[in-house]
């Protein structure tokens, strides 16, 4: 499973982009479960929060958009592990 995270916005507006492939990883099952959960629970649609991070998650071609502070726990965990950045 290929998981991509693109982050934009934020007070500093430093863009971040990272991709992870679960193939061959010992934690592949967990990551894939996390990704499916992240896709299936986009959270309530809200207007953008000033200075909030916005994210585009793409999992094997399926895309979901989400934004702080409305991330589900699965989305936040996934983003944190793919971007390797506090989220």
């Amino acid at each position: 499973m290929r998981i991509e995270v693109v982050r934009s916005g934020g007070f500093a507006a430093i863009p971040r982009r990272a991709t992870l492939d679960t193939a061959g990883r010992s934690d592949a099952a967990l990551l894939e479960s996390l990704a499916r959960s992240a896709l299936d629970s986009p959270g309530p649609a809200r207007p953008p929060v000033p200075d909030g991070f916005g994210y585009v998650l793409t999992v094997d071609g399926r895309e979901v958009r989400c934004a702080d502070p409305g991330l589900t726990p699965a989305q936040r965990e996934l983003i944190t592990h793919v971007l390797h950045e506090g989220a």
Binding site: V49, P50, G52, E85, G86, A87
Partner: peptide, 15 residues
């Protein structure tokens, strides 16, 4: 959060 590189206004309060 942990090591969070941001601050924002959520419509009600500062974070």
């Amino acid at each position: 959060l942990k090591g969070y590189n941001n601050a924002f206004w959520n419509g009600e309060q500062m974070v």
